[in-house]
Amino acid sequence: MRILALESSCDETALAIISGSGSDWVLEKDIVYSQIAIHQKYGGVVPEVAARKHAETIFPLLTETLGEEKLATIDYLAVTAGPGLVASLLLGVTAARSLAYAAAKPLLPVNHMEGHIYSNWLSNSELKNNDQKYFPSLALVVSGGHTELVLMKNHGDYQLLGTTQDDAVGEAFDKVAKILNLGYPGGPIVSKEALEGDDQAYKLPRPMLNSGDYNFSFSGLKTAVLYTLEREKNISQAAVKNICASFQAAAVELLVKKTIKAAQEFQVKSIMIAGGVSANQLLREELKKESTKISLPLFYPELKYTGDNAAMIAVAAYYGLQNKNKKILKGEEIFSAKPLSNWQIFLK
């Protein structure tokens, strides 16, 4: 079985090919074209610019990925249908629909958040070879657009335990970087500054830490950084580092405490993290420390698979086909594939 996957939900245009049978699969191709450099000058993703860029890059990337054989040896197409920016998603979905229909190949719409979770299968051979041992698993998916705690009972079987009630954690990092005038994307910059800062220097709140549920709130934390800045008119470089460290410590504590609590309540066999913010070193270290205390294995993706990519979409489609838990569109049905900008992971 050979699958071509397309991903264009935000500011990356990506293609991948996976092939195999059973739990034995290999990633043959994996191409990501990132627009970060373009969006840096705007301080964030500009939806219309992103969509235009996807349109320009997707066909050259297809040629590069498929080569001379084109679609001849591809059995299935998979595409990210949501959640994401509707204009960006539309490009990928339209391209996939056209290719699938013209070449008479079945098409699988894939959930982007599910894809992120499967980035762990790309990076951990122990998980890939023995995944049944690790279900149910608790997945913390954290990025610029999402902060979700998902109970993964088995392949394709999800329960959403909690989500942010306002800003996503990655968005909070981006906005704190903007408030401090540090640039975009905010996550890596804030983390870098935090390395040399004192995380006890500022007392920042931990919103919803004791809310009794698995939801998150990061908007108040962002505003607390703003107030801190307004109190101190002339802020030194050292103070910026301290604010970054204090902010990051608060954000990570919120994520780790709720994840560990959920892991205990739902008696999971493993914890996974995924998404752009799963690249955060402090989050990895703290979660490793806390999961070890309760004797749970922690899986996280290689850095290159923390961001958006098509390899994770290909893997999610692969397991969807193996376990027959995905909609497979054929013939005229292919045109029913649509961008679903708010597609929740537990919905088929």
Partner: peptide, 12 residues
């Protein structure tokens, strides 16, 4: 429903 920030997706 919880009204969450539309910054990332532009529109909800």
């Amino acid at each position: 429903e919880a009204i969450t920030s539309p910054t990332f997706v532009l529109l909800k």
